[in-house]
Amino acid sequence: MNNKKRRIIGFWGYPSLDLINKYKSIYPNHEWIDLDIDYGCPKLGILPDAYCKIVKNMIYNAIWLKDRIDIIIAPIGKEKCDSGWFAAKLLKDMGFKVEESIYEQLTRRNKISISTSNLPLRKKFELITADIIEQKHPHYEQSKPEFGFWGVPPNDLSVLELFPDNTHVYGWTRCVEAGVPGDIELEMFVDKDVPTVFYAQAFCAKTQLAKYLADKYNGLYVDIDDMVTNSVKYKIEAFIKLR
């Protein structure tokens, strides 16, 4: 996050391109802040303790940055989750200006290049999420997948550093790169012969998909609540080393 005290447009997930362009035009000098990300803001106890950490980030970041936020663009459709819809309602009720976004289109697709590149896995995730607001679509050198990582960007991105560079990205993050965050068919796609870790944020509805796909493709199911623990790291490390 930029430390300058610029005014902010907050968002989560993948807002519609029309809304992104609309608010870039209205607020050309505003900083776009992805409220999904864990910036270490205070835990306010508004949501239950046992709840999705990403949704906690959305609400608590917004409250923490309230004085600087002029608008929150809030995906609430199939490209996000019911919790996004509830969060939008709560934040409106708290006095935020919120514009709800539904971006379930399946036709306007970007070519996938980052997910299948030889960049470090963490870098892949950072580029894909940064691309939501500032779409660049450069071509990256491609790799043959040795491992796969399926899922949303984890709250603790350090878990991605456990994987070799020729790990391909699947699941919702791949959908984001393709510009179709609500495409359930693409979200469920994996290369079936590639050993894959199926990750979901604890208490997220996507644990349903992750567990099912891990069983179906003989992968490793992992859910993490907040920060990754040593035991989870060792489990992933063993999965990679024993293959």
Binding site: N218, L220, Y221, T229, S231, V232, K235, L242, R243
Partner: peptide, 9 residues
């Protein structure tokens, strides 16, 4: 050959 694992911690 490794087939599967899990760790409940």
């Amino acid at each position: 050959k490794f087939k599967d694992l899990d760790w409940n911690n």
